[in-house]
């Protein structure tokens, strides 16, 4: 008997490679989206700060807008986008 695989369709789930499961601002899972969005992933991406904390981009932008100082909400260091 000879078995030949012609095609294999697998199923995978995607996830962000981050050191936490949930966004520290909105408390939603990173793999879900921020409260203002409907679609996860490309439409509601994550961003990392120089301090290595990460958030939904929409969450951190909203946060920074509402604060007099541009600090990371988790560690209170000055916030800088880390373009890694």
């Amino acid at each position: 008997m000879k078995v030949t695989v012609k095609s294999w369709t697998g199923v995978a789930t995607w996830r962000w490679v981050a050191n936490d499961d949930n966004c520290g601002i909105c408390r939603m899972p990173f793999d879900s989206c921020c409260p203002d969005c409907k679609l996860p992933g490309d439409d509601c991406p994550l961003v990392w700060g120089a301090c290595s904390h990460c958030f939904h981009i929409h969450c951190i932008v909203k946060w920074l807008h509402s604060q007099p100082q541009q600090q990371c909400p988790m560690c209170r260091q000055d916030w800088k986008f880390n373009n890694k």
């Binding site: 030949t4 012609k6 095609s7 369709t9 199923v11 995978a12």
Partner: peptide, 29 residues
């Protein structure tokens, strides 16, 4: 496939569900 995906979508990776999906095979007997 995972590596290719990671290259395509930065900071994201895949977890496979090995038992899901479907396979087209040919058996010669």
């Amino acid at each position: 496939y995972t590596k290719s995906f990671e290259g395509l979508k930065g900071n994201r990776t895949l977890s496979w569900k090995p038992h899901l999906g479907n396979v087209n095979i040919e058996i010669e007997i």
